[in-house]
């Protein structure tokens, strides 16, 4: 199977400080990868490089065999690379239906149309209600976001991302800030993600990582120190070192 998403020798340095060093990653459709690493390992920088918010010093990002390193963030979204946010970024005065509707319209190239309320467009709304229903948000479709629970807002983030029909989905701590009672709903939604979607999840909660991921990538001091099965990750000596101590030195021998 050919890779839908490839990162090749990605490197980013701020002055003399190398924050991402020679990172390579390749994913096929249906992959479920968890990207983990101690604080300051360079996970956020990695997301920013991949989504186009930051320009890499060297290296390449490819989506479905097309190099996108020189394409801006919006162009990468249009080509199927979609991210979610660690802290929800939603419009407080808008409804879930409006959020998802806007995403559907954007995907179909109709978000710049000057006429017709999309809440009255049958084709768009059918898809919107369908997505909201799948994530258990149907009954909240026309409530303002400020009135719905945080766990439901996280689900809405997922609905928006899915409405863009991505081929690669980057989830930045999808369960962050969600009360324990609601994490089950999030996990259920993650388990029901489309089978052919390649998903990278950044997560600290190791229980969630083990349940979700088929492959774990560990980043420490800007370098990938482990890429393999979840069952092997806790046995790996370098991973233990990175998490349990002396990881400050990892940058020196990298």
């Amino acid at each position: 199977m050919s890779a839908v998403f490839e990162v090749i020798n990605l490197k980013k340095a701020f002055g003399g400080l190398v924050v991402t060093n020679d990172v390579s990653l390749s994913m096929v459709a249906g992959d479920r990868v968890a990207l983990i690493g101690p604080n300051g390992a360079g996970k956020t920088t990695f997301v920013n490089l991949v989504t186009g918010a930051l320009k890499p010093s060297s290296g390449e990002v490819r989506l479905r065999n097309e190099p996108v390193t020189r394409i801006g963030p919006t162009g990468r979204v249009q080509r199927g690379l979609v991210r979610s946010f660690q802290v929800t970024r939603l419009f407080q005065d808008m409804t879930p239906a409006e959020h998802v509707g806007l995403a559907v319209l954007q995907r179909t190239g109709k978000s710049a149309e000057l006429h017709g309320n999309f809440l009255t467009r049958p084709a768009v709304m059918e898809e919107v209600y369908d997505l909201l229903e799948r994530l258990g948000l149907y009954s909240l479709a026309h409530r303002k976001v400020r009135e719905i629970a945080y766990g439901q807002q996280r689900l809405l983030e997922l609905a928006i991302a899915l409405a863009l029909k991505p081929s690669v989905l980057l989830l930045d701590e999808p369960a962050a800030g969600v009360p324990q009672s609601d994490t089950g709903r999030i996990e259920e939604a993650l388990a029901n993600l489309p089978a052919d979607l390649a998903v990278v999840m950044i997560e600290h909660d190791m229980d969630l990582v083990f349940r979700f991921a088929k492959r774990v990538v560990v980043l420490a001091a800007g370098t990938i120190i482990f890429d393999g099965l979840p069952a092997d990750v806790t046995k790996d000596a370098r991973v233990r070192e990175a998490y349990l101590g002396s990881y400050a030195n990892a940058g020196l021998n990298a």
Partner: peptide, 15 residues
């Protein structure tokens, strides 16, 4: 209206 509230969000939608 989305742009007014959060341009980063709108960019993440690809607009």
């Amino acid at each position: 209206r989305g742009i007014k509230e959060d341009p980063v969000r709108i960019r993440a939608l690809g607009a």
